[in-house]
Simulated assay, not measured.
Amino acid sequence: MMSLLFLVFLVAMICVLTKKKSLAYALFTVGMVLSLFWLNHHATDPLSILL
Rank of each mutant, 00 (worst) to 15 (best):
M1Q: 04
M2I: 12
M2P: 00
M2N: 01
M2R: 04
M2D: 00
M2G: 00
S3K: 08
L4Y: 04
L5E: 01
L5N: 02
F6V: 13
F6K: 11
F6S: 11
F6H: 10
F6N: 13
L7K: 07
L7E: 08
L7N: 06
L7Y: 06
V8E: 04
V8A: 07
V8W: 10
V8S: 05
V8Y: 05
F9D: 09
L10N: 03
V11P: 03
V11H: 02
V11D: 00
V11Y: 08
V11K: 01
A12G: 00
A12M: 06
A12V: 09
M13V: 15
M13W: 05
M13K: 04
I14T: 04
I14M: 09
C15F: 14
V16G: 02
V16K: 02
V16F: 00
V16H: 02
V16T: 06
L17E: 03
T18A: 05
T18W: 07
T18K: 02
K19T: 11
K20W: 14
K20S: 06
K21R: 15
K21V: 12
K21C: 09
K21T: 14
S22D: 11
S22L: 12
S22Q: 06
S22P: 02
S22R: 15
L23C: 07
L23M: 13
A24V: 11
A24M: 07
A24C: 06
A24Y: 03
Y25L: 14
A26G: 04
A26Y: 05
A26Q: 09
L27A: 03
L27S: 01
L27Q: 01
L27P: 00
F28R: 01
F28M: 10
F28I: 10
F28H: 01
T29Y: 08
T29F: 12
V30S: 07
G31D: 03
G31V: 13
G31I: 14
G31C: 08
G31Y: 10
M32E: 10
M32N: 10
M32D: 05
M32T: 13
M32L: 15
M32G: 08
M32V: 15
V33I: 13
V33H: 01
V33L: 15
V33K: 05
L36S: 09
F37E: 13
F37I: 15
F37G: 13
F37S: 14
W38C: 11
W38T: 14
W38V: 12
W38D: 05
W38F: 12
L39R: 11
N40M: 13
H41V: 12
H41P: 02
H42D: 02
H42C: 10
H42M: 09
A43I: 11
A43Y: 03
D45W: 13
D45H: 10
P46I: 13
P46Q: 09
L47T: 14
L47N: 05
L47A: 13
S48Q: 05
S48T: 15
S48E: 07
I49Y: 01
L50R: 11
L50P: 08
L51E: 03
L51K: 10
L51R: 14
